[in-house]
Design a binder for these strands. Structure first.
Lengths: 322, 322
DNA sequence: CTGAAAGCGCTTACAG
DNA sequence: CTGAAAGCGCTTACAG
């Protein structure tokens, strides 16, 4: 360590730099000053190797350029940074193998824990690696149906119910559910909620697909070829709604008057659309922050803490598309 | 190292796991098999401490939830991941001090290099720390006017000229430039280009502000209180254009017929707007990928490589808002 | 082709 | 209050 050129031992330097032990004010300031003047920067690789602690946290999502995850990640970064922790990111593209590879390399880098929005197709087994090394992790957004794992997400059934109920109140009885992968828990729960909210006298037609703008556009086009009595679109998420908007207006339909549209997520762009989108707030930023907090507390307590599930209550954001 | 419980020395294990040295096929497979069966995961903290190499790259932007940087970062992550590198992210919120702190902690974590979109107010001095430690870094998107540094960005003057010229061709002579911080190089160059493209007989009114949706909305409202003969809006970027869209339609103006709007960036959402936005493509993904490639080549060659500036040629994306 | 030894830069008991 | 020594898990010359 360079700073020992101030005439003291390495141990002493380490002690003052870490604010540990009892060091005389004189040597303390001496060390601090020489460290500053030398522009000393701690090598955490070495310190972590010895102490076993890490300032890195793995942050794994399917695609950080998806506005939902961009918001989610930015919020997580914020709370992590406040604790001096740094997120290491990886996109899985919803590929389980890529996810496993990211897990391995991050583990290898010695991250202190993980925040993971599981790739499609993940099972509880996908994270056995982390259990084996006893690394704390919290899953979020995507529920893989494992009750023994910490999870922060939202109540999908309730979110669906809110959307369905809102439409029912507006008198819609024949509705299209656009986008979403039919085999996923997120979809099934949301669909169930929609059905409940709409009530038993209603009709729902489903047009599945990956939750992207493209799906929204294409599925809406298909729908419009034979619209029937459909008066409202429930879009799996706001990205899908974006695509639906463009297909709808390409058809000359006026959103909010000719046809209603509701989304899920409340990503920032939706409030600037024409008309602003009515959507079910799923708190991407709140989830990111909460997941980071939960991980932090897991890292602190580490053992002997039962698994927690926190579900944020979705909320209707009433705007002009319905 | 656990794997030496296969009867060989640590050195040998290290050699086979790194594919170095000449090892007999027999011991090689023996080691590989026992490593696999034991679920061995290399501790890179240790290996990096010794070898001085790192698999971490610092990725610093003002805000990763900004769609431009979300795209940028996702693309950078892609090319980094292909090389087995992992991005560590930090948002500066355009605060130079936060940027410095992130630089320090990442340095401390031993990143192999940096990709940085400089926070507003950065000067060449802001990165002296990296020069002192001889850490490769590439700046991008925001030009801080340092010619001795690797930079990947776009030609702002040209981008502005494209937008101005397009509007001039459509017969617009009285134009408002919405959003953007007037003291920034990016703004000044873009403005200069717009003026050139529009031609000398035109009028440009400026409504500055941080390049956000909110600014777009508020500045457009101010403009509309006294619109005068203004027939077109040039928005500093697509986020500003989003805000402008909502203010415009709240005023009952039909975009593309009553008034023209053009943006910069071409973030994904713009193509789904009503009407789709005419914008100047600035290649967020291309920039991210290119910056990562450039950093990679810097890390390889390391010394004796003159600074490079690569500017991507902007391109008009003609859609229906003009 | 393989092993023993040194050393990367720290932190952490342990003496004193 | 401070120092000497061991050791975190690797890689890398150096012998053999």
């Amino acid at each position: 360590m360079v700073a020992e050129k101030a005439g003291v031992s390495v141990s002493t330097v380490s002690l003052v730099l870490n604010g540990k032990g009892r060091i005389s004010t004189r040597t303390r300031t001496l060390v601090e000053e020489t460290a500053a003047s030398l522009g000393f920067i701690l090598n955490r690789k070495a310190s972590q190797l010895r102490s076993g602690k890490s300032a890195l946290v793995g942050l794994i999502t399917s695609d950080i350029s998806n506005p939902f995850f961009a918001e989610f990640s930015a919020a997580a970064e914020g709370v992590l940074a406040d604790e001096g922790l740094l997120p290491v990111i990886a996109n899985t593209g919803d590929n389980v193998e890529r996810q496993t590879r990211s897990l391995e390399i991050m583990l290898s880098e010695g991250v202190a824990g993980f925040i993971i929005s599981a790739a499609d197709g993940s099972t509880p087994k996908s994270f056995d690696l982390l259990r084996r090394f006893d690394i704390p992790f919290v899953l979020c957004v995507r529920d893989i149906g494992d009750e023994n794992v910490d999870f922060v997400g939202f109540d999908n059934v309730r979110a669906g119910r809110i959307a369905g109920h809102h439409l029912a109140e507006k008198g819609h009885k024949d509705v299209a559910f656009i986008g979403g992968v039919l085999s996923h828990l997120n979809y099934q729960q949301r669909y169930q909620g929609v059905a409940e909210g709409l009530g038993s006298a209603s009709i729902i037609r489903s047009f599945g697909g990956l939750p992207t703008r493209t799906t929204g556009q294409e599925a809406t086009q298909v729908l419009l070829e034979d619209r029937g009595a459909t008066t409202a679109l429930i879009c799996f998420n706001d990205l899908v709604a974006a695509g639906a908007y463009s297909a709808l207006s390409a058809h000359g339909l006026s959103i909010g008057t000719d046809i209603a549209v509701v989304g899920f997520d409340n990503i920032p762009e939706t409030s600037a659309w024409t008309p602003p989108l009515t959507t079910v707030e799923l708190y991407p930023r709140g989830l990111g922050a909460r997941a980071a907090q939960m991980l932090l507390s897991k890292i602190d307590s580490h053992h002997s803490r039962p698994a927690e599930t926190v579900l944020m209550a979705p909320q209707l954001i009433l705007r002009r598309s319905t």
